[in-house]
Amino acid sequence: MRTGELMDLAWRPVEDGGEGTRAVLGLAGPPGAGKSTLARALVDGLRRRHGPDAAAYVPLDGFHLSGAQLERLGLSSRKGSPPTFDVHGYAALLRRLASRPAHDVYVPDFDRALDEPVAARHVVAPGVRLVVTEGNYLACDLPGWREAREWIDEVWYVDADAAERRRRLLERQLTGGRTEEEARAWVEGNDMPNAGVVEAARDSAWVKRVFHWSGHD
């Protein structure tokens, strides 16, 4: 699907809800499917169409556990798997955003250069009409993720060919400083197994749309 068409579909719950409505759109899908790129494209495009308060970006990746916590839990080698996120913190943020507080809400992100979460990189202003959030496990029927989904109006599943996802993931690891051997081992031993967990939720009843994103308008 093209970006312009997806923008129309994303904005529809806001229009249907009338003045003052805030909707939350969740983009699920396996690692490397293009979720974060699409989320940013939707937010940027909707701001151009409807003004600066039209949409805001809220990435799940800001709720990665820190390296110190992963080491404490013995999960350093499984970074990116479901238990390596603060899903309850993420659900609490979505609940807060859905309540439309009369003040800015600051949102964390993940810094790939630091390989750590960072606080307050994004902000959701009081007048924002659509929150676009994305993360691998938003469609999964797992503890914590179910609770987070209560605050999401629509869940879309962004898919991509497995070979293309591998290519993107390998490039990501190489850019992050791993050797080619290390990068391939990480993708096959961690990212692709995580993708299997995500793919099991692809056809869940609460997933409204499943599509490949073309990356074009």
Rank of each mutant, 00 (worst) to 15 (best):
Thr3Lys: 06
Glu5Ile: 11
Met7Trp: 10
Ala10Trp: 10
Ala10Gln: 09
Trp11Pro: 07
Arg12Trp: 14
Pro13Tyr: 15
Gly17Thr: 12
Gly18Leu: 07
Gly18Cys: 06
Gly20Ile: 00
Gly20Leu: 02
Thr21Met: 15
Arg22His: 07
Ala23Thr: 00
Ala23Arg: 09
Ala28Gln: 04
Pro30Ala: 15
Pro31Asp: 03
Ala33Asn: 09
Ser36Asn: 03
Leu38Met: 03
Arg40Met: 14
Arg40Cys: 00
Ala41Gly: 07
Val43Ser: 00
Gly45Met: 08
Arg48Asn: 07
Arg49Pro: 03
Arg49Thr: 02
His50Asn: 10
Gly51Cys: 05
Pro52His: 08
Pro52Trp: 14
Asp53Gly: 10
Ala54Glu: 02
Ala56Met: 03
Val58Asn: 06
Asp61Ser: 12
Phe63His: 02
Leu65Tyr: 07
Gln69Ile: 11
Leu75Val: 10
Lys79Asn: 06
Gly80Pro: 05
Ser81Thr: 14
Ser81Asn: 05
Pro83Ile: 12
Thr84Trp: 00
Phe85Gly: 10
Asp86Phe: 02
His88Glu: 14
Gly89Asn: 09
Tyr90Ala: 06
Tyr90Ile: 07
Leu93Gly: 01
Leu94Val: 05
Arg96Ser: 14
Arg96Thr: 15
Leu97Met: 09
Arg100Lys: 11
Pro101Thr: 05
Pro101Tyr: 08
Val105Thr: 11
Tyr106Ala: 13
Pro108Gln: 13
Asp109Leu: 13
Phe110Trp: 13
Arg112Ile: 04
Leu114Ile: 13
Asp115Gln: 14
Pro117Tyr: 05
Ala120Met: 11
Ala120Asp: 15
Val123Ser: 09
Val123Gln: 01
Val124Lys: 00
Pro126Met: 09
Leu130Asn: 00
Val131Asp: 01
Val131Tyr: 04
Glu134Ala: 00
Arg146Phe: 01
Arg146Met: 06
Ala148His: 02
Arg149Val: 05
Glu150Ile: 08
Asp153Pro: 06
Val155Arg: 00
Trp156Pro: 00
Trp156Lys: 05
Val158Met: 08
Val158Leu: 15
Ala160Phe: 02
Ala160Tyr: 01
Asp161Trp: 15
Ala163Ile: 03
Leu169Cys: 03
Leu170Asp: 11
Leu170Phe: 05
Thr175Glu: 15
Gly176Trp: 11
Arg184Asn: 10
Arg184Pro: 02
Arg184Thr: 01
Trp186Arg: 13
Val187Asn: 01
Val187Cys: 02
Pro193Arg: 04
Ala195Arg: 00
Gly196Leu: 12
Val198Gln: 00
Glu199Tyr: 04
Glu199Asn: 11
Ser204Ala: 15
Trp213Met: 08
His216Val: 14
